[in-house]
Simulated assay, not measured.
Amino acid sequence: MRVGYARVSTNDQNLDLQLIALRKAGCDKIYSDLGISGAGFSRPGLQQALNALNSGCTLVVWRLDRLGRSLPSLIHLVEELGRRDVDFQSLTESIDTRSSGGRLIFHMMAALAEFERSLISERTRAGMEAARMNGKHLGRPRALSMADIMQARRALSSGTPPQIVADTFGVSSRTLRRYLRTSEGFH
């Protein structure tokens, strides 16, 4: 069985071109979403299409971007379909995982997506390292400054209960203990 899926982002757009192409491609059932973004995969028509697929079926779309905009997410979805023994076909890009050539094209796209993720990760790490070398603090702002820690130590040594000291600085007693422990050599 061939299951078609069509989507347009706005209610002003028309599904006709996609529906005609899907019918011409021999789709037995066609599901659609009207006026729904392709950013996420939580769409009623898409869920119906995915639920209609059984082993040996093929999911058919007019164009890849009708299924989704994120290449890594598309790859994940098509790989999940493959695990269910469901094939995938995109009419415009001529991707058909039923053929060895179609699987090759799809895997090349997956490799490019993985390469892109690696480049982004490398750039992020390099940017973080450069920021660290320039003395910038990365991550969440510190809950307590060194002056706060010293003031907390004085309050605790004068007998103020830890919970009251923590409340004074707007942190939990656990956070206060962690800061006191990690700053041991800095009094």
Rank of each mutant, 00 (worst) to 15 (best):
A111F: 00
R123L: 11
A152G: 12
K24D: 15
G101E: 11
V165H: 07
R2F: 11
G170P: 05
L50W: 05
L74D: 05
L144V: 08
C27H: 02
V165T: 08
D96S: 10
S183F: 00
D167V: 01
M146F: 03
A49E: 03
V171E: 07
R83I: 01
A113C: 04
S70F: 01
L46Q: 08
R123S: 10
S99M: 06
L180K: 01
G159S: 07
R174V: 11
R84Y: 01
N51V: 00
R43H: 14
A130Y: 02
A39F: 04
S42T: 11
I95F: 13
L59R: 06
T160N: 06
Q13P: 12
D65G: 03
D85A: 12
P44C: 02
N11G: 01
V86F: 07
V8P: 07
E116N: 09
Q48H: 12
F106A: 01
R140Q: 12
A147S: 12
K24H: 12
S172L: 12
D85S: 15
C57R: 00
F186L: 14
L34W: 08
V171T: 08
R23L: 03
L180G: 03
T160E: 15
A166L: 09
V60C: 08
E184L: 14
S55K: 13
I149M: 10
F41C: 02
S145C: 06
L104Q: 10
A111C: 10
N54V: 02
H137Y: 02
V8R: 04
M109S: 04
G139I: 09
L138Y: 10
L67A: 09
P44E: 14
D87A: 13
D85Y: 12
V165A: 10
G159W: 05
G56T: 05
W62F: 13
N134M: 03
R69M: 07
E129N: 06
A155W: 11
L53Y: 09
S121M: 09
A166Y: 08
H187P: 02
M150E: 14
N54S: 11
L34E: 07
G135Y: 12
R132L: 14
R23T: 13
F115T: 05
R83G: 08
S94Y: 09
Q13R: 12
G185H: 13
V165Y: 11
S157E: 10
A49K: 04
H107C: 01
R66Q: 05
T10P: 00
F169I: 06
L144A: 06
G135S: 09
D167W: 00
F115M: 15
I95W: 06
M146S: 13
R103V: 13
L81I: 05
L156G: 14
R140P: 08
T168W: 04
L91S: 06
E79C: 00
S70G: 05
R174W: 05
N51F: 00
A49T: 03
D33F: 13
M108C: 06
L19R: 09
I149S: 07
D12E: 15
S90I: 06
F41G: 13
L46Y: 11
P141T: 02
P44M: 02
N14P: 01
V78S: 01
R153Y: 12
R174A: 11
D96I: 01
L91H: 08
L138I: 14
T92R: 15
A21M: 01
